[in-house]
């Protein structure tokens, strides 16, 4: 029961590890650094990008034969911006609470170069279905790293996961804190996100030698 052919499956699975947008293609770094101090924000951002990249890739792919090559970047940017604004406005009208959670990410999604990068590299040259899969795959790979970094930073930085204390209470000195453990507030600062991603790259490339740069 293969719904997806082998080539199509590869489109989704490849970006997860061997061609990960963040650690290999170097796309979407800014947002990966800005919002990963908290696991919840990482998850919300991943889902938003999944949506925008999936739909955006299809739209661009459908338009690929009529877009004038001279102004293709403008067209791509306008498509992303319009998509994001539409979603933002609709949410504000019908799901206000949700829109408040997302409003922080609106700007970050538009400027997220993973979206432009995939439009340019894939959607402009492929059909809608394949572009959709590529979008989903890349967004998932991106989200995977985001959630990983968010997990590490929130756990060691604030001792919580998704806002729930998992290591005990630092003020009451319960749980781990009773034996002298301290939160590493440094983890919450953005430079640490860079270092965590650096370490993820290290681990990933030690496991797969073919990715090592000369």
């Amino acid at each position: 029961m293969a719904i997806l052919s082998k080539k199509d499956t590869k489109l989704i699975t490849d970006p997860f590890l061997d061609n990960n947008p963040i650690t290999i293609q170097v796309l979407g770094i800014c947002s990966a650094l800005a919002i990963t101090a908290e696991l919840k924000a990482s998850i919300v951002m991943s889902i938003s990008v999944l949506f925008v990249l999936g739909v955006g890739n299809v739209v661009i792919s459908l338009m690929r034969n009529i877009i004038p090559s001279k102004i293709r970047i403008i067209v791509q940017l306008v498509v992303v911006a319009a998509l994001v604004i539409i979603v933002d406005q609709v949410l504000k009208a019908y799901a206000y609470e949700l829109s408040k959670t997302l409003s922080v990410f609106v700007g970050l999604i538009i400027t997220n170069c993973i979206i432009m990068g995939r439009f340019e590299a894939f959607a402009l040259g492929n059909g809608p279905w394949r572009s959709f899969l590529d979008g989903i795959g890349n967004a998932a790979g991106y989200g995977f790293i985001l959630i990983l970094v968010g997990f590490v930073r929130e756990l060691f930085g604030s001792g919580t996961l998704l806002g729930f204390p998992v290591l005990g209470d630092p003020i009451e000195k319960s749980g781990l804190y009773s034996i002298g453990y301290e939160n590493n507030g440094f983890m919450l600062l953005s430079p640490m996100a860079l270092i965590v991603v650096g370490i993820i790259i290290w681990v990933q490339r030690s496991r797969n030698a073919s990715l090592i740069e000369d």
């Binding site: 101090a37 924000a41 409003s103 922080v104 930073r153 929130e154 604030s158 919450l188 953005s190």
Partner: peptide
């Protein structure tokens, strides 16, 4: 409006 999640937020 847009402080850093987990920090200023």
């Amino acid at each position: 409006k847009g402080e850093t999640p987990g920090l200023g937020a």
